[in-house]
Nucleic acid binder design. Structure first.
Lengths: 354, 354
DNA sequence: TTGTAAGCGTTATCAT
DNA sequence: ATGATAACGCTTACAA
């Protein structure tokens, strides 16, 4: 039975030597047997395995790492844990590394460069095999530098250095997708209310929206893009302003679910029915917002968990000697709820010419 | 200059031997000098420090840990990263351990006991010095068991084993506080709409509310507690049902901010002004909900970040040989916004008798 | 197939 | 004050 330092009498941990002794072999043989090396007599292996089992042997990862020269750990350096975008990315990464028997060190720099350096040092000193830098906003960030002893992957916020590998969300494609969906719902008079113009993502999403509209020979209604802030109250205010300017609209693409929620409220206060009169699509697929609004909000999902997984896989590849470079943009998908209503589903019909 | 395995030619990492060689001392002396031991000649120490600096020496934490028998790491075992309650706790813990030069391994069991066991093994194999188990809901959970080789602190979800140390939020006190605040706002006809009756926290908060009311010689309006689910839509539905039953109420205590938000919406749809006619207080202080509702929502804050810090401190103490046991309940505080309006501030007046 | 022995990078003990 | 030397627990040549 394993003993406890927590409450019972503390006792030496079980080591490979204990296992070897019990199985009556050398530590070298015990090591080989446990690590599935081929040059071990099946009978011997069985004895070793049984001994390890009986003693509940668990190899000391530090010792193993020390001799192997790799720790089997990676550092997750986030800029802002509070931001709700980091979380799904962390989860995706955690998931992907789990399969890999790689453990994660979590560090939160709280948006402070000093603290980031501090954590970076700590992580390197812990001999992490690689780093994932998770940004808080979709805009680019300073590189950690080209001279690190381990590979780095930037997730969500791309690195400014093109020689680094970054995995980000394709906001232009996201914007396209949103408008595409509204067009598929039969809407043509589409307005776009979005967040902080200081964010690259605002402009990217707007560009995707405009591009898709242009392809359909259309333009944004309401005299261009309404930039503001990523809040519900801006969504409300912008909608009021928009309606003062024109009521000739049949859909709104909101740059975030929070904004969309404000849009929904004011549209309905103003007597417009959603989705009958005006359809609304958001961005983020933030369940508690999108799922609980009235009506439930259709939205664009950035698939951040997949982004985290992808970042983990890329890092694993880089650690294995296959580094990447440049910025990889991952796609979004539409999650349809009740604020948009696609026209009759064409999937079963033969493709139309053109 | 430090060289890179990432993009430049890889080269051996700098070790203590390199530093010692450059400073022309033995590794033993170099170690003492760098670790601030007293028995080192100031001149020698300066030479060593300079050498370490020049080589950007960073000690290998695995080697150090192997030799010291402690890793300087702890495991953070969460049941559900998605849940928004884990996050602030993680941040608090991260913060507290940061001061301590302790690094955190992050593991998410996703509510699965098998996965939890798997992670537990991995963490022990990594020689963590202790564990924090962060629950997803405030109800108690199975203990990890009494026979672990390292101390454990349970945060948010207490362990069912009273011999374990758990740090949780005092929901009874939170409920009291909410009602206390409404009373201080001059309200006496208070209804309580809360979430899932399967959660202990629902009952605890309700009990706190009732206790405080009883002390004031009052009872809940609306025929007792309205249990349901932790959603906005339940908040809306419950409010409609409540208003059908009675309009003789001047305040609502909602069991969560999401519920409160639904309450706010329906009260106002029904022509009641908030806070003039009915005041509303929520629970959680979930900024994006409470801060963006109309009017902005007063609410009870569980101070989860402080809880995380406290858990970290307790674990540090336990690792140092001062284990604790039992359940520690931490207090809440009211965050006042616009959905409640306290009467004239009495703080500057002399205390009233009684 | 098995065992011996030399590391991995650090700290601690104990001479000097 | 300084320096050999032996751990710490594991892997891996290399020898037997």
């Amino acid at each position: 039975m394993r003993v406890s330092a927590g409450r019972d009498q503390p006792s030496r941990a079980v080591t490979l030597r204990d296992v070897a002794r019990l199985a009556e072999v050398s530590t070298a043989t015990a090591s080989k047997a446990l690590n599935g090396r081929p040059d071990v007599n099946p009978g011997t292996r069985a004895r070793v395995l049984a001994a390890a089992e009986r003693l509940s042997f668990s190899p000391n990862a530090m010792a193993r790492g020390l001799s192997a020269g790799r720790s089997g750990t990676v550092g997750l350096l986030t800029s802002d844990l509070e931001g709700r975008f980091s979380l799904p990315i962390l989860m995706g990464a955690e998931d992907a590394f789990g399969a890999d028997r790689t453990s994660l060190f979590l560090c939160d720099a709280r948006g402070d460069a000093i603290r980031e350096q501090h954590h970076l040092r700590a992580l390197l000193s812990r001999q992490v095999d690689g780093l994932i830098v998770v940004g808080a906003r979709p805009d680019s960030r300073r590189s950690l530098g080209p001279n690190l002893p381990v590979p780095v992957v930037y997730a969500y916020s791309p690195s400014q250095d093109a020689a680094d590998l970054s995995i980000v969300c394709d906001n232009v494609a996201g914007g396209r997708l949103a408008v595409d969906h509204l067009l598929a719902c039969g809407r043509t008079r589409i307005a776009h209310i979005t967040g902080d113009p200081g964010y690259g993502a605002s402009h990217d999403r707007a560009r995707g929206a405009r591009d898709r509209l242009a392809e359909a020979g259309l333009e944004l209604v309401g005299d261009g893009v309404w930039f503001g802030s990523w809040t519900e109250s801006w969504g409300r205010r912008a909608t009021r302003l928009l309606l003062e300017q024109t009521r000739e609209l049949d859909a709104v693409f909101a740059g975030s679910d929070q904004i969309a929620r404000g849009v929904l409220d004011v549209l309905q206060e103003e007597g417009l029915r959603v989705p009958e009169d005006v359809q609304v699509i958001g961005f983020d697929n933030w369940e508690v917002i999108a799922g609980e609004s009235r009506p439930a909000l259709s939205t664009v999902d950035m698939q951040l968990e997949a982004l985290g997984r992808r970042a983990a896989q890329s890092l694993t590849a880089a650690i294995a000697g296959n580094p990447g470079a440049g910025t990889v943009e991952l796609g979004c998908r539409v999650v349809q709820r009740d604020s948009t209503t696609p026209r009759g589903n064409d999937r079963d019909l033969p493709p139309r010419p053109g």
